[in-house]
Design a protein around this nucleic acid. Structure first.
Lengths: 331, 331
DNA sequence: CCTGTTTCCGCAAACGTTTGTTGTTTAAAA
DNA sequence: TTTTAAACAACAAACGTTTGCGGAAACAGG
């Protein structure tokens, strides 16, 4: 184990004190230019890198955020992360990404890791099984802000940023009404998720509001395969839907697979619409019409909220970004 | 800023010394069970969390790996990361994930961050523009192992783990020959990437070897859209291919979009085969036949290599994992 | 020559741990 | 009763930094 290059080592080699080295490296005016360059030269040939641990210990100021997500698999989370990373760098912060694998136990471990690393703040999307967010909220007392995003706790008052779930769903409903669809197979996600409930409510409310007389057949699919089966069965009967609504990309993938199997042409045989972050809709032809939920925008919003919290904002806020309809050719 | 709970604080509250607290918390036999429980109780009500920075500074033993990737967007990298994470936890390590955004400058920054954090080792997939990996290799002198994976430097001798690129391509070729395809539209990726070159060579070599008399039309697509256009044009002419080979998922997405636009039925009108990590092929119906490149397996391999390096293995090795054919219904 | 400023640099403490060593009790053995 | 060992806990140094403070040299103004 080669011993690491430290300030002390540099100091000894140059017959200077540690403090002088430290100051020289950061252009402190107390140090003569001559000494400064001498120190910097040696530091660079020896490839001195400051020890992050020592710095953080000493300064007690960890410019680092934790991002805890169920998984980095979805395009939505990835663009959220990239967006936060981008902002963070701009403000001299860095981020660590923790995956919970949708497992509350792992989630707790990740949270602990954040605490042990004394992060300056946490962005969290909780797992679908997380029931108790007290461990998150406790952090707030210790002055470390927690911004929940996307998958947020249902009841607690805390800082939440979300896509306008309701809006995205009702916009999709409006699009369906506009196209005069009569019979819409509507596939939503896991029944227990608050996001599902909100979207479902807005969706049905919108149909009621317009009194379009559209028949909507509501199903819940936990994954791609289930969505696949649902569509298959729906088209097996005598009365076939003239449109399919998918609540997520995951569901869309299953639905489209079924559409392919049934050799349905869209939009002719059936209209398709989904709520998405934008990747999957674009790989089909025609491209799928969707209402957008932008991880990128959400990241920006979450970050600005984080900065506000760090600056002292103490009241919990629930923010959301709006959605818009992106027309493909599928409806 | 609420002051953090430290050993010292606990010590004062219990009228014990810091060292006693430290030992009590880790069940050191020197400490009486009575004291131990007393300490642990207080620690838990105060939610004491050890300061990671102090520990690492003191012990100089950072059980942490860095993973540097161009982006976490591909399914392949994600499964690689998950796989490494999994192994890491098993061995008491943790990982930090750094994205370079395919930008060499950012890559260098990430590398520096790893150095400053004194990681125990680095897994790196270099960007497509990275030309000089000296900065990576220097780390090896400082006893911090670097395992390149997937996107590895072409010439330097260093630790590399890859999927058997050649194998995957030649297996795909064999599958095409077996199906007696006569005219194969073959779409490869960026011409300059070494992975493209290897796959292209193995692919064409295999056709030569079997002397099947298959006509292969080779194209290069840098992205999904280009692949889309290539397929469209290929089928615009009078002589239509009876199969399409895609080198990556990205290309597959474009090709399939074109297939949908042209309303081609597969495998009847045209056979499809691709090299993939397995996500995309499964969202189509019928599912696409592909030769597998498993990020998961690669992660395991890379990790075991890392452990060997840490244990003292000093010679550079180039390892690869094999591939296998996963039959969908598309060929 | 004596003050008063600059200019430059070193001393030392502190951040929160871990750990080798030393010290004090208590109880068992002689 | 004295000696010895075991049981328990405190002391102190160290990890690599940062930073307030103090101080020596050099130089200017009087």
């Amino acid at each position: 184990m080669k011993p690491e290059v430290t300030l002390k080592k540099l100091a000894e080699m140059l017959n200077l004190s540690v403090s002088t080295i430290s100051r020289a490296l950061k252009d402190h005016p107390d140090i003569s230019t001559e000494t400064r360059t001498k120190v910097k030269e040696l530091a660079s040939v020896l490839e001195y890198e400051p020890n992050a641990y020592a710095i953080h210990l000493r300064t007690n100021n960890n410019k680092e955020f934790g991002i805890i997500v169920p998984a980095i698999s979805s395009y939505f989370y990835r663009s959220f992360i990239s967006s936060v990373e981008e902002e963070a760098t701009r403000f001299g912060y860095s981020v660590i990404i923790l995956q919970s694998g949708d497992d509350p136990v792992l989630e707790q471990k990740n949270l602990k890791k954040c605490k042990q690393n004394r992060v300056s703040g946490i962005f969290a999307a909780i797992t679908s099984k997380t029931e108790d967010v007290q461990s998150f909220l406790k952090l707030e007392n210790q002055q470390i802000p927690v911004i929940f995003f996307d998958k947020v706790p249902a009841f607690e008052t805390c800082n939440k940023v979300c896509v306008a779930d309701g809006l995205a769903a009702s916009m999709a409903a409006e699009a369906l009404i506009l196209k005069k669809k009569q019979s819409v197979l509507s596939i939503f996600g896991n029944k227990n998720l608050s996001i599902t409930k909100r979207r479902l409510k807005s969706y049905t409310d919108t149909f009621k509001k317009y009194q379009a007389g559209t028949e909507i057949f509501t199903f819940h699919a936990g994954n791609t395969e289930e969505a696949f089966q649902i569509v298959l069965e729906a088209f097996a009967g005598p009365s076939k839907p003239d449109a399919v609504f998918c609540m997520t990309d995951e569901i869309l993938a299953g639905a489209m697979k079924a559409v392919q199997k049934l050799a349905l042409r869209f939009p002719k045989d059936v209209g398709i619409i989904t709520i998405s972050d934008g990747y999957l809709p674009k790989i089909y032809y025609p491209e799928i019409t969707y209402t957008e939920t932008s991880g990128h925008k959400l990241g920006k919003l979450a970050f600005s909220r984080m900065l506000a919290c760090i600056a002292g904002s103490t009241v919990a806020q629930e923010l959301s970004i709006d959605s818009k309809l992106i027309e493909g050719g599928s409806l």
